[in-house]
Simulated assay, not measured.
Amino acid sequence: MDPSSEIILDTPYFRIYSDRRIDRLMGTETVPAGFDPSTGVTSKDVVIDSDAGLYVRLYLPLPDTVAAAASPPPNVNDSKTKLPVLVYFHGGGFVTQSAASPIYQRLLNALAARAGLLIVSVNYRLAPEHPLPAGYEDSFRALEWVAASGGDPWLSRHGDLRRVFLAGDSAGGNIVHNVAMMAAASGPRVEGAVLLHAGFGGKEPVHGEAPASVALMERLWGVVCPGATDGVDDPWVNPLAAVAPPRPSLRDMPCERVLVCGAELDSLLPRDRAYYEALAASGWGGTVEWFESKGQDHVFFLFKPDCGLLQRFMRRFSLPCIWRVLAQ
């Protein structure tokens, strides 16, 4: 048997071989940007670096849609008011999905409309072809582009660049934390962050974490970030690990408000809860909230678009929780 054909990581979503080849079993379908009549949101793609394949998909809700959003901050009812800007990082284990994936197009159209946000969805490079930290570097570069823009008329005309927020699910939640740490070291300013079922790991299990979950993250991390000197205790994947200056720690979180979301049946729940508790106890001067979806599994909101529970989650996610984090 050819050693290069050995499967070293087999999941329902992707399969990785010992020579770093990958079979992406989902997350490769794409849809074009454009107007979504069901939400009144228009999207478009903007290239930041064609050589790196780095682009963003912008989502802009119509003024009437923003004004009709339930329980928005009072100033959003004025159609001339600029919108908060949410920079979103998709999930997919660092190896699959994209800013053009149908599940993210659907999610972000709904979120832009319901929460009255100008959303910037980042298409970062994927491992194993582009090992981390490439995806982190792309994501931070996109944040810098947003903060400096100017670069696109939607942002300059409709986005309030004093209110820039980060959000992401699964691997994207991990990226939220790391982009925030990069911003803490060198700017730009970030107002708040939302981590949805974030993908973290570590060599030692945290309370309630199953050994199988620890082992899976260790195998994945060895493929997506092979240069990590501390393995799965690298601070990129284990925010609870000790860091040496000048690398920022949790107490240096640059946001004023952070929302950490978990799901009761998700194997990542113990890590997400531990992250929330560590941030709350770090000496950071901001406000952190915890929200747990009972009876639900990892990123359930992406895969159950017709589920009544999803609709309740979206109301909870996009209105009370998001507005507590995003509203002035």
Results as ranks from 00 to 15, higher is better:
residue 234 D to H: 02
residue 248 P to F: 05
residue 82 K to Y: 09
residue 218 E to A: 15
residue 321 C to I: 13
residue 108 L to D: 14
residue 275 Y to L: 13
residue 243 V to W: 09
residue 176 V to D: 05
residue 266 D to Q: 02
residue 40 G to K: 01
residue 287 T to N: 00
residue 290 W to H: 08
residue 266 D to E: 08
residue 129 E to N: 11
residue 28 T to K: 00
residue 315 R to T: 06
residue 12 P to I: 12
residue 26 M to C: 14
residue 87 V to M: 02
residue 4 S to F: 01
residue 277 E to T: 03
residue 238 N to P: 10
residue 293 S to V: 07
residue 203 K to V: 10
residue 108 L to R: 13
residue 287 T to F: 08
residue 297 D to C: 08
residue 294 K to S: 15
residue 91 G to Q: 13
residue 176 V to F: 08
residue 283 G to R: 08
residue 222 G to C: 05
residue 255 C to I: 03
residue 1 M to L: 12
residue 221 W to Y: 14
residue 205 P to W: 09
residue 114 R to P: 05
residue 251 R to Q: 14
residue 247 R to E: 13
residue 315 R to P: 07
residue 292 E to L: 12
residue 240 L to C: 02
residue 155 L to D: 05
residue 159 G to N: 02
residue 120 V to P: 04
residue 168 G to E: 06
residue 91 G to Y: 12
residue 308 G to Q: 12
residue 240 L to G: 04
residue 62 L to N: 08
residue 186 S to W: 06
residue 279 L to Q: 00
residue 169 D to A: 11
residue 270 P to C: 05
residue 143 L to Q: 01
residue 197 H to R: 11
residue 116 G to Y: 03
residue 112 A to K: 02
residue 7 I to G: 02
residue 224 V to C: 06
residue 263 A to Q: 02
residue 88 Y to G: 04
residue 5 S to V: 10
residue 307 C to A: 15
residue 272 D to E: 14
residue 277 E to V: 04
residue 217 M to A: 14
residue 117 L to I: 04
residue 288 V to A: 06
residue 317 F to G: 00
residue 6 E to I: 11
residue 244 A to L: 03
residue 170 S to H: 10
residue 327 A to D: 14
residue 254 P to R: 07
residue 49 D to S: 10
residue 134 A to T: 08
residue 260 V to L: 12
residue 20 R to M: 15
residue 140 F to N: 03
residue 62 L to A: 15
residue 130 H to S: 13
residue 148 A to N: 09
residue 181 M to E: 07
residue 71 S to V: 03
residue 157 R to L: 14
residue 184 A to L: 12
residue 202 G to K: 04
residue 295 G to Q: 09
residue 72 P to H: 09
residue 13 Y to T: 06
residue 317 F to E: 04
residue 18 S to H: 13
residue 119 I to M: 08
residue 285 G to C: 06
residue 198 A to P: 15
residue 33 A to C: 09
residue 261 C to L: 11
residue 304 K to L: 12
residue 175 I to L: 15
residue 9 L to Y: 03
residue 300 F to Q: 06
residue 218 E to H: 12
residue 282 S to R: 06
residue 204 E to Q: 15
residue 236 W to N: 10
residue 303 F to G: 10
residue 313 F to K: 00
residue 95 V to F: 03
residue 19 D to K: 01
residue 141 R to E: 14
residue 208 G to S: 12
residue 117 L to P: 05
residue 150 G to P: 13
residue 104 Y to P: 02
residue 278 A to Q: 01
residue 150 G to Q: 14
residue 46 V to Y: 01
residue 111 L to S: 03
